[in-house]
Design a protein around this nucleic acid. Structure first.
Lengths: 181, 181
DNA sequence: AAGAAACGCAACACTGATGTTGCAGTTATT
DNA sequence: AATAACTGCAACATCAGTGTTGCGTTTCTT
């Protein structure tokens, strides 16, 4: 691919992710403007709107997958893996703020990848339960859902928080809540 | 208003809330079908799409406001008020699943009401901090955001959980997290 | 410098959603 | 039972977003 084409592609994907996160109904024209390219350029690269969305999803899934790999969720000690995962996934969630769980239903392939990554996290949370890091009187499913939401909250509602501090905050809130001892 | 008109209005608002929560771009035609009325009936009641959205928002705000009033956030002991709020707001969030924070920007009046209710919760969380129920090393804003997300998670990702149990789970997770002691 | 690749621009067709109107038929109210 | 209110149906106009094509120009690559 030519260099300028790669630049534009990148700009379109990032602009798309940003605008679509704010409003899933954002037009391709608006995305083109935000990316600084002509509308027809977007249409040339992506056969239709769905293809553009899929590309954005893939970009997010690629980044998230790298984070999951590098966190070594199945091998590293639970607290270490947890922190490494959080510190990696929060920037990913900020760069690709699209809500994968809601917008991928029309893209079975992307949804399958999402589900696969999701199950890796499920397994990690289950390991945390098995190894005694989480209370046994709350379901792993609940713990997992809470973790997801804490990540999103730290990533998007506290954008000025640096990733390491955000990871600390999420981890501590996840394990200990916000109540006084 | 005639009785059948009231029934239809109610059906449209509820169907609208449900479908718009799943997909904010849902067409008025789809809402009409889900509500079991003709598309023109919806257009007769609501001058335009925006008016329909506003009506859905108002319905949610009305329900939420009642919950805030009855929780006695400024007077009742913090743990009592918290539990009463949670037990009330979770069903509201289920009946009116629309995401107010994202969809109200085009309706200044509704957004002002939302902001007002939000500030009541802010004040409550601040009181919880002042009275020693929350850790002082995390910001009240973070605690507040976490509370919001826990409510949404319990309400929508665990729809089979009864409101009282859901309130217990949210309260305990909020204060103590999910980590083992 | 030359060729290839990508781009912007203008113009067009197509589609789905919105919003309106008229009218005949149904339902609630008194 | 009479009246008023409401509804469904059909038809229409309008508009915004999508997707396509052709052409001259710009921008990379070698």
């Amino acid at each position: 691919m030519r260099a300028d084409a790669a630049r534009n592609l990148n700009a379109v994907l990032h602009a798309g992710a940003r605008l679509l996160a704010e409003d899933p109904g954002t037009s391709m024209a608006a995305i083109a403007v935000a990316a600084g390219v002509d509308r027809t350029t977007v249409h040339r690269r992506f056969a239709n709107r769905e293809a553009l969305l899929s590309a954005v999803f893939r970009a997010k899934l690629d980044s998230a997958e790298r984070v999951l790999d590098e966190a070594r969720l199945t091998e590293a000690p639970v607290p270490v893996a947890l922190h490494r995962y959080l510190e990696g996934i929060i920037p990913v969630s900020r760069v690709w703020p699209v809500d994968t769980r809601r917008m991928m239903r029309k893209d079975p392939e992307a949804d399958a990848r999402r589900a696969e990554q999701s199950s890796r996290l499920d397994a990690f949370v289950q390991r945390a339960v098995d190894e005694g890091y989480l209370r046994v009187d709350v379901s792993a499913a609940w713990a997992r859902a809470v973790l997801d939401e804490l990540v999103d909250t730290a990533a998007h509602r506290f954008p000025d928080l640096e990733a390491p501090q955000a990871a600390d905050l999420v981890a501590r809130t996840f394990l200990e809540g916000v109540g006084a001892a």
